[in-house]
Amino acid sequence: MAAPIAIHLEFGGGAELLFDGVKEHHVTLPSQSEPWDVKQLLVWIQQNLLKERPELFVQGDSVRPGILVLINDADWELMGELDYQLQDQDNVVFISTLHGG
């Protein structure tokens, strides 16, 4: 069993509008048999935090193209993307690039 982990989530660039305008969320992911990865985190966010228009945030089992993901301040493309295993106190940021310029 993997112990519950506390992580910090941040939504920006307009993505926060899908979360009642709230940018920062401190959340605890419950204990489960497998370690938490980003793919499971996306499902958890969709079930527990996302307030509206899920199609603007997720597409298939990943984020919608055009939403950038940073894990501990680094592009998730350097971290294994969906396969990255979350650690306690990790910081995950979602920034939409899809809003006006």
């Binding site: 920006g12 660039g13 307009g14 509008l17 055009g66 950038l68 940073l70 592009d75 940021v93 920034i95 939409s96 690039t97 809003h99 006006g100 310029g101």
Partner: peptide
């Protein structure tokens, strides 16, 4: 690229506005 513009703004902590019209 838009990705780089957004990351540049994010890493530099530039103050910008992002809401759909």
């Amino acid at each position: 690229y838009e990705k780089e513009i957004v990351l540049y703004a994010y890493f530099k902590k530039l103050d910008y506005f992002s809401t759909e019209c």
